[in-house]
Amino acid sequence: MTPPKKQLLLAEDDDLLASLLNFRLKKAGYDVLLASDGQQVKELLKNHIPDIIVSDIMMPYFSGIELIDFVRNELKSQVPVIIISSAGNEQNVLSAFELGANDFISKPVSPSELLVRVGRELNKN
């Protein structure tokens, strides 16, 4: 019997990148939930908390920083969160880490690197 797929929430407002990463992550065996903005993420998280969250920092309605705050302080969840940030966004990355982000990956994103980081965070837990 194959083990259940790990569920991953991918929050990315760039459709093309989201689609590409979604394809890669699905191919790697993850059950991917896609959200294109912060509100969608919030709705999804209220219903179900995935095994790991991969989120862009800059998103409409609800930024990645707010998302971490929401997960850690409102949902009281310790689900691993990996943030995707563009270069030159160090301050946001630091804020994210302060709020409880587990890891970060900078744009341009290497899908292979993302897979490695996701796997590592899941193994930690």
Binding site: L20, V109, S110
Partner: peptide, 15 residues
């Protein structure tokens, strides 16, 4: 257009 957009956002072997 798609390829040029993606070229900005991805790196490594995917690029």
């Amino acid at each position: 257009e798609i390829l040029m957009d993606l070229q900005k956002d991805i790196s490594g072997d995917a690029q």
